[in-house]
Nucleic acid binder design. Structure first.
Lengths: 120, 120
DNA sequence: GTTCTTGTGTAGACATTCTAGGCGAACAGA
DNA sequence: TCTGTTCGCCTAGAATGTCTACACAAGAAC
């Protein structure tokens, strides 16, 4: 039963992944798998981070100087890249968070228009 | 001063435009310009709808059967296409709205993690 | 020494938005 | 009339970012 596990394209809205990664790394350095898992767990499994989205995103953030990478060893004794927020990344996180807030509030205004308050 | 009016790409997150259009048409039929203006005004000018995004989106929605189009005349006595929500579009609006709610709440949980409430 | 698991990574398809135009018709002013 | 402006619709191609579907290396399990 319930084989309607049909994968939906575009689980994530474009542009939000950067924000999610930056915010996750604010809690401390982590490797790729950890980042993906943290996002999934902290969103109560609503947000799924595919590997094919994750790594390109991480490389993108490195190129922009928002995070740095460093080789290390994981909890399971495997080689892993540890990613860390840079000062520039912190500033970017603040900017992106504000942008998200403004954006989502704007959508909310459309979805639930305020009354035309012609108060008295 | 302040010529930093630099246009930012991707003012809209991918996928949200369909939702905005459907919701706007819930208020009644409208032509393209009206839809775009309504979204801009109702979002307090946070959301800008470019023509190059608007019309492809409208055609997309028609193709999916979520809206219908009909020739008419605008307030200014110009030829215009009037778009109207179909029953299928209404159902889609409900679905998309729920999807948006779940999504934005998930993002919110990431941005502002809930306390680990080990409430005694 | 296979097999499973962990973790990183890429190529190509895909969907959507944006830039930057073009077009026809109604209107306004001379 | 004819010239320029506004209204409204439309499209081609670039840009961006996500997803699917792989490949691969190395430690763990047996």
């Amino acid at each position: 039963m319930s084989t309607q596990e049909r994968k939906k394209r575009l689980e994530l809205l474009q542009g939000t992944l950067d924000l999610l990664i930056l915010r996750t790394l604010l809690l401390g350095p982590a490797h790729g798998h950890q980042v993906a898992r943290a996002i999934e767990v902290n969103s109560d499994d609503v947000l799924q981070v595919e590997q094919g989205s994750l790594y390109p995103a991480l490389h993108r953030l490195i190129k922009r100087g928002w995070i740095s990478a460093e080789k290390g060893v994981s909890e399971n004794n495997r080689r892993a890249m540890f990613y860390r927020l840079t000062p520039k990344g912190r500033r970017q996180l603040v900017a992106e968070t504000g942008k998200w807030d403004r954006f989502s509030q704007a959508i909310a205004r459309i979805l639930r228009p305020a009354r035309q308050e012609s108060k008295s």
